[in-house]
């Protein structure tokens, strides 16, 4: 019965969109880069629209490009889905914190709204919730802005990518590694990240040498994150 929060849908919707403009600029930058790299990886324009429009998860989409193959027969369908599952598992924790936005009777509406949640808009909405301004409409406003931006910039990037014939001759093959490196550096939260990142790196290097294919990504990710959790536990117990 909180009338103050539901007088009009459009007010908090546009407030959410406005509050998310700074992070959406960063979403746009990643969208263009993803589109360019997607073209380089052999993803068609239709597939770019489907992936950005239906999956809508940045990190998972970047990792998917690393696994993608140009010939459909060799496309690793299982590893692609498994990689998306593992990389997106963290969303369990993110969307759980949005529960207060929905009343007990709004489970279906809430679950459907979660499609539009991304790391960026989640962070802004959580900040607004702390100030009492966060509502479902606020989340949706930021989400719709981020979603349309991500989709549009991916298409722009894919179109721009056609101007580049041989990426390696310009050093553009390194754009992949550079982007992953920047994504990684952006996740730095403090010394607690040293152990999981180092263990993941070592496990991935060893696995890449021993097992063909892209298993090193998943194995490194699982071993490293477990090492991080164990290190956290040890530090808290002491």
């Amino acid at each position: 019965m909180s009338d103050a929060a539901t007088p009009r849908f459009s007010d908090p919707f546009f407030a959410g969109a406005r509050a998310c403009i700074p992070v959406v600029i960063s979403v746009a930058a990643y969208g263009v880069v993803w589109g360019v790299l997607a073209r380089g990886a052999g993803v068609s324009l239709l597939e770019v629209i489907m992936m950005s429009g239906l999956v809508f998860a940045g990190s998972a989409q970047f990792v998917a490009l690393d696994l993608w193959t140009t010939t459909p027969a060799t496309l690793p369908i299982g590893p692609l889905i498994l990689a998306a599952l593992i990389i997106n598992l963290r969303y369990l924790l993110l969307t759980a914190t949005l529960r207060p936005l929905f009343r007990p009777g709004q489970q279906v509406k809430g679950a459907l709204t979660m499609f539009i949640v991304s790391d960026e808009t989640w962070a802004i909405t959580l900040g607004a919730m702390a100030k009492g301004r966060g509502t479902a409409a606020f989340l949706l406003g930021g989400g719709v802005l981020a979603y349309t931006t991500w989709l549009a910039t991916a298409v722009i990037g894919h179109t721009l990518g056609s101007a580049i014939d041989d990426p390696r001759s310009y050093g553009l093959d390194f754009a992949f590694t550079a982007t992953f490196l920047v994504l990684l550096l952006g996740m730095w939260k403090g010394k607690g990240d040293v152990i999981p990142w180092l263990v993941a790196a070592l496990a991935a290097i060893v696995t890449a040498k021993m097992i063909p294919g892209s298993w090193y990504i998943l194995i490194g990710g699982m071993v490293g994150s477990l090492a991080g959790a164990i290190a956290d536990k040890v530090r808290h117990v002491d």
Binding site: S59, I87, R90, F180, A200, A201, A204, G220, G221, A229
Partner: peptide, 18 residues
């Protein structure tokens, strides 16, 4: 803690072998 560390570990695994 395990869930929280997954994205960073996956990205580190992508960068290191390259």
């Amino acid at each position: 803690a395990w869930l929280k560390h997954i994205p960073g570990a996956v990205l580190a695994s992508l960068v290191a072998p390259a």
